[in-house]
């Protein structure tokens, strides 16, 4: 019984991850400039990669037909999701700072720029 509960919970998490993946892809394609695309890409990375990995770990713990190596799969997926939760935001933040300082990306649809008033990034 507990196996079925684990498998169903993991499959629900994987479906939620696919939904976030789609939303991230469409947002990355349709939003107007770099700083708004950053929002869509981070949503796609966290919701589309961390959540399905936790779901895959739950499915692997529940599915007994995979044999004993399924604990290896669960541990690797869980470790990878925890590390990804730290690394994705660090990479996006470094890229945004570099794009602002070097002036590589256009800032055109903008309302208020607090960094310029303070005098540089």
């Amino acid at each position: 019984m507990i196996d079925l509960v684990l498998v169903v919970a993991g499959l629900v998490l994987i479906v939620i991850g696919v939904f976030y993946d789609f939303i991230g892809a469409i947002g990355l394609l349709r939003l107007p400039n770099f700083y708004t695309r950053l929002h869509a890409a981070t949503a796609g990375a966290i919701g589309g990669a961390v959540v399905p990995m936790i779901g895959a770990a739950l499915v692997a713990l529940g599915a007994e037909y995979l044999g004993p190596p399924r604990f290896f799969l669960a541990g690797a997926a869980f470790t990878s999701s925890i590390l990804l939760m730290i690394l994705a935001q660090a990479g996006s933040h470094a890229l945004a700072r570099a794009a602002y300082i070097s002036g590589e990306a256009q800032r055109e649809p903008i309302l208020y720029d607090a960094l310029r008033e303070e005098g540089g990034g």
Partner: peptide, 19 residues
């Protein structure tokens, strides 16, 4: 259009590919 857009797209593509 610019370099950071491409890097950001490859980044998200890699994370989702890992999942």
């Amino acid at each position: 259009p610019t370099i950071p857009d491409r890097v950001l797209a490859i980044d998200s593509l890699g994370y989702d590919l890992a999942a």
